[in-house]
Design a protein around this nucleic acid. Structure first.
Length: 106
DNA sequence: TGTATGACCCCAA
DNA sequence: GTTGGGGCCATAC
């Protein structure tokens, strides 16, 4: 993976995440695949982690392949993500979301 | 160069 | 439903 690829990939990640419809969720691996870089799920997480606090990007709609919020159980960020998901009508129970119900099919 | 660390993923049991 | 183990790959040191 070249440095050009990385810059391009980061930009594509932002674009794809911005595409996730209101009320839907997508997984890290799904984002990576849509960008044309399978097996780079961890990179997606690392990229989202660098987003500024006031970012307009709907980063909260990105969760892991099991439908769970990826933050540690005790973390403040986890609480915030769950709050934002519920705010747009997504049911979250015990940090989990039903993918058949809320998963995004592009 | 080598090792450790993640907002990860998959599958078998 | 859970758990464990292997795989994955950019980053930080």
């Amino acid at each position: 993976m070249s440095t050009e690829d990385r810059a391009h990939l980061s930009e594509m990640i932002w674009q794809v995440v911005a595409t996730i419809p209101h009320g839907r969720v997508a997984s890290y691996g799904q984002i990576a695949r849509l960008c044309g870089f399978p097996r780079h799920a961890r990179y997606v997480g690392a990229t989202l982690k660098q987003l500024p606090e006031d970012s307009e990007l709907p980063w909260h709609r990105v969760i892991n392949a099991k439908g769970e919020v990826a933050f540690r159980a005790d973390s403040e960020q986890r609480r915030r993500q769950i709050e934002r998901l519920r705010a747009e009508g997504i049911a979250v129970s015990d940090g989990r979301v039903s993918l058949p119900e809320f998963g995004w099919q592009p």
